[in-house]
Design a protein around this nucleic acid. Structure first.
Lengths: 188, 188, 188, 188
DNA sequence: TATGAATGAGGCTTCATTCAT
DNA sequence: GATGAATGAAGCCTCATTCAT
């Protein structure tokens, strides 16, 4: 892939993220994306087969990257559940707009996206399970649900609704996990 | 409102809930709703100004009813946090399809719906706060976030994804609150 | 089907025939047809799934009607090959524009239409065969090819290109068949 | 024209013939042609002004070549009508794909092409007239129509539809002319 | 009140053509 | 000459909404 081709695709990608996040998948027109990207309507179709396709590629990118990042932490045996969650929250915060699309658009954007969303949720829960079972001796599924739900609440309420900064959110996370797990963590 | 008018509107209401839940707001056509309801296309517009309007009315109905139900429990000073949560879960379970639309479509269906959704979330959190502060002496916002997130996880994962029955879900709820609060509740 | 519905479909049908005949299938836009018919763009899609569909329905109509008409003549045992051909030519002349579409657009409008065209051609040849074998004792396939080709030449050259009137064309037909068959026919 | 330029143009020419014949003029995209030719999209426009232009050049080439070939036969006073027709059929068979485009696409590809087609048809008929009037003493226009139609039927039905081989088709031709003319020809 | 045919603005996508390299 | 990414006009089709009956 040539440099210029890569650039054009990236421009469209960035514009799509921004537009999907602002207007939502269904209200976003391809013409909005290309206007934001500064390319012609037809150019969009050189890189994506459809609007659907574009969203799917974006979500897969976030999905894979996030899981990969967490997996690497897990392989480092010294990572605590706090490290994992903080890493997750940081990534979501970094990709705020794209995450918004993933977490709050996917369920209503068609079967394909719903499946991707639930695959993601399942993966996150599995990772939490793994770390919890290594870390504590009274692991159970309920704890996974509590933490998984708490993470989503942090994102939904503190990031999206209240729009708080990362440090404040990590503080909430720390306090929450402390309460849930009854343990103290080193902040990272 | 005459009896027959009420019936027609109710037919459309029910059809709309079913269709929105099955196909999502954006993929639902007015023609789908009226086909399901067994009335003519034009009839829809005798009762609703628009497709948006119809969804909004539905969500407000769920919103108000749910808050009202919880409020009544709160006014009965003996209600525990478990009672409140169980009542909430039961109602969501009862209006499974409509709730699905509310909890997972609203954020992506336009500004108006997003506002309604966050108003609802805020109300639920406030009620939890109120009960918690009456019930425990170490109440804090973090606990509200944990419980609020846990409730949504129960709905998202156990009701929508795994499609478990009400009793199983209430069991999860009980175990979760026990873990969060470190207390035992009377099951209702 | 209500009267008004029938009328609208007929209006579109007529407009489609005219437009297809004038501009050809590929150059005809749905917007041309509806403009000619005096209805809205969307109305077209109440009656046809697509432009393809519309053409197909038109051609089938001509196809079936023409075959039916000839079949009835054949069942009357006294019909000569001249009667059959004259009846065919008259029908083509009557549906001049639609026939033009069938005979000269179908082969280039996609597989489906090509198949319909060759089915039609085969049917016509079979009918000619049947009548010839009843009428003469030295019937053979070559004669069928000669007559079939002659008929198409009459249409292509005298109707479409020279735009001659029906009587002149029937005169050509009479002379041609006389030459081919070496017999004299009663003009009908 | 340089050698390499000639090669590129020829590659595109050949690809265009193949593609037009397979998919028809309207369904053929310039991108199909260049893919088949193995050149870049822009290269097409170094040799042709437009897709229309390319088809027109192709058809003119077939047109002129065919007429030229027949004219040479006519100048040789000993050529019979069978020689002329056989030569015509052989050429059509040799340029099967291109002929398909000419004979069955031209009428529906726009005014310019329709004119070219009828010019061709007129030329063929004139040549037949000329030979017939030299060969027989009871020449008339009807015979021209019969032979012209028969030739097209041979192409349409036996070449395109039944896909028979050249010898078989020439046999049909021989039998047909024998029947039409009541004479015996030397096969060439 | 109820109907359902008709509307038409608007979105998605295609593809012939251009042009900078 | 050759390339192929970029263009953008144009066309098909959808569907929320209207309105005459």
């Amino acid at each position: 892939m040539s440099q210029s081709k890569k650039n054009t695709k990236q421009k469209i990608f960035d514009a799509a993220i921004k537009t999907f996040a602002e207007k939502g998948f269904w209200k976003t027109k391809v013409s909005d994306i290309v206007a934001e990207a500064g390319v012609a309507q037809g150019t969009f179709y050189l890189y994506f087969n459809s609007k659907d396709d574009c969203l799917y590629e974006l979500l897969e990118y976030l999905h894979k990257g996030t899981l990969h990042q967490i997996n690497q932490l897990i392989e480092n045996k010294q990572s605590t559940i706090f490290d994992i969650c903080a890493s997750f929250i940081k990534r979501i915060y970094q990709y705020k707009m794209l995450s918004k699309v993933f977490l709050f658009e996917a369920l209503s954007s068609g079967e394909k996206f719903k499946n991707l969303y639930f695959r993601f949720k399942k993966n996150i829960r599995d990772m939490l399970s793994k770390v919890l079972s290594e870390e504590t001796n009274n692991y159970n599924e309920t704890t996974v649900s509590i933490i998984s739900g708490f993470l989503k609440e942090l994102i939904e309420y503190y990031i999206l609704f209240l729009n708080e900064d990362l440090d404040t959110i990590l503080k909430h996370l720390y306090e929450g996990l402390e309460k849930i797990e009854g343990a103290r963590y080193e902040k990272i």
